[in-house]
Structure formats: C-alpha cells, structure tokens
C-alpha cells in the first residue's frame, strides 16, 4: 500500500530538499516505486538537487489545474528506474495550489507508487500546510540549533492539528531526522546533543545525518547523496533512515562517533 511522507521543518535551510532526494533515492534503490514531489512553488529546487532541472516540461501546478496529465509531468530518474520526480512550478503563484487539486494528485499517485515523498517549503503558510495535509507520516528535519528546534516544535503542533489524519482523529506518525550533526562539537558541549533534541521535541528518532562535505558535493553534481557516493557517511545514515521508514529495525548509530585517539587529540572532524 502506498505511503505518503511529508518532509518538513518550519525553518528553511535545514536540509528538507537534500533529505527528500536522499530518502527517495534510498527507497527507490530497494526496488520500491518512489516519487519525490516538490511543493515549493516559485522556489523549486528538488529538480536541481536531483539533477533533472533541464528535463522539466510540466509541473505540479499544471497537473493540479488540469493543463497536463500526471504521466506528462512525472520525470523518471536517469539512474534509477524506480525513482520519479514531480517538480514544482517556478513561474506560477503558490495560490494556484488548491486543497482539492493536491488531494486529486496525491490520490492518483497512491495508485501507482509505493512511496510518495512530499518536499515541503519552509514556513507555516499554505504550501507547507498543503504538503503535510495528506501525509501518513511526517519526517521532521531538524538541525541541532535553537531556532531550528523551536520551528520544528511549531511544525509538530501543526502536524497534530492541520492534517487530514489529525482532523479524522487519527494519530499522525512523526519522526525526527537530525541533520548537520557534528558529534565532536556536541561532545565538547558546543552543540545540542541528540538526546537534548529528542527530549525537547519528544518524537521518535529516524536518523542522524552527520555534517559532511559529501552533501554539498552531491548537490553540486545534481545527485541525491545516497546515489553520489554510496559509501560516504551521510549516504549510509540516509539509507539506514530509509530502512527504518520502511519498518526495518536498524540499530541507531551516531556517525563518526568512533574516532581514534589521535583524531580526538587534534579535534579533527570525523566526517
């Protein structure tokens, strides 16, 4: 049965698009048919991170308004045949996104995909609430930093109030994805620790993604980090998170925590 996931955070720049692309690719690598949907109308970037920016013809708004069929707007990934992208519109206004239109598109996607991953825009306005509205599960992307944690708390409140699930009296499944985590700085007491963030937000942990150069390198290349270099630390962390999303039991590791004595002595970064 299809599962709709919203990747959300409230705050911008914490890694929603990176995480959508990486989780989407990791799920597709398992052989499950996956679509990543960009809800950031006017500021689309998922196409760029996925390396499909020159292949966009039709977008989400075209489909919502009936100007194009869903099959015309979907872009199949060149590396993985189980991975698809539904881009956002770059030129239209986000007011063109209607609740009914979005519901129709999501319902249609549910028929032919195993995973529908919605990349939410930042903020708590229309685009963000529509992206979360039809989700079965939410991935709350948070950096170990005060403003990100505060905004995530706000988003968790919205997930419990403004989604279809919440309105039907059902429980919205929420998971924390802690990104840009630096174990060395956390150990020194200069960054919130995993447990601090978990205690404050009190939602279960999906994964810890280390701060890493590999993330920028992958986006430079236009590739989800899980495809760009399968063995780098963030790729492993995202792949484990994807397996947990799929219901597998995977032991939680804090990437880069097992550092050698010399590394510790010179305070070198792990990832």
């Amino acid at each position: 049965m299809a599962k709709v996931i919203v990747v959300t955070s409230g705050k911008g720049g914490v890694g929603k698009t990176t995480s959508t692309a990486a989780l989407g690719a990791a799920l597709a690598q398992r052989g499950e048919k996956t679509v990543v949907v960009d809800f950031d109308v006017g500021l689309r970037n998922l196409d760029l991170v996925m390396g499909a920016e020159r292949r966009v013809v039709y977008d989400l708004i075209n489909v919502v308004q009936g100007d194009a069929k869903l099959s015309q707007a979907l872009i199949r990934d060149k590396r993985l045949e189980t991975l698809f992208l539904l881009p956002a519109s770059q030129t239209r206004d986000k007011d063109n996104l209607t609740a009914e239109g979005v519901e129709r598109v999501i319902d249609e996607l549910r028929k032919s995909f195993d995973w529908i991953i919605c990349d939410s825009p930042a903020g708590i306005e229309r685009g963000a609430t529509l992206a979360m509205r039809h989700a079965d599960t939410a991935v709350v992307v948070t950096n170990p930093e005060v403003s990100s944690v505060r905004d995530s708390d706000r988003i968790i409140g919205l997930l419990d109030a403004k989604t279809k699930k919440a309105e039907n009296g059902e429980r919205m499944e929420k998971h924390l994805l802690l990104t840009r985590y630096d174990p060395a700085r956390a150990e020194r007491g200069d960054m919130l620790k995993v447990d601090d963030v978990l205690e404050i937000l009190s939602i279960p942990l999906l994964g810890i993604i280390p701060e890493s150069m590999d993330v920028l390198r992958a986006s430079n290349l236009g590739s989800p980090v899980t495809l760009a270099d399968v063995s780098c630390a963030p790729a492993i962390a995202y792949r484990d998170a994807a397996r947990r999303l799929a219901g597998e039991q995977v032991p939680m590791t804090i990437p880069g925590e097992r550092r050698g004595f010399m590394n510790k002595l010179f305070g070198r970064r792990a990832a």
């Binding site: 200069d190 620790k193 601090d196 404050i200």
Partner: peptide, 16 residues
C-alpha cells in the same frame, strides 16, 4: 569557557 549547549537546551525548554 563554558560550554554553550546546556544554555541552548535550557532556553529552549523555557521558551517552548
């Protein structure tokens, strides 16, 4: 120099 993370944690708890 005192570590700053406990301060962040405390401020967040009060604020939230």
């Amino acid at each position: 120099r005192r570590s700053s993370a406990p301060m962040a944690r405390e401020r967040l708890q009060v604020l939230l």
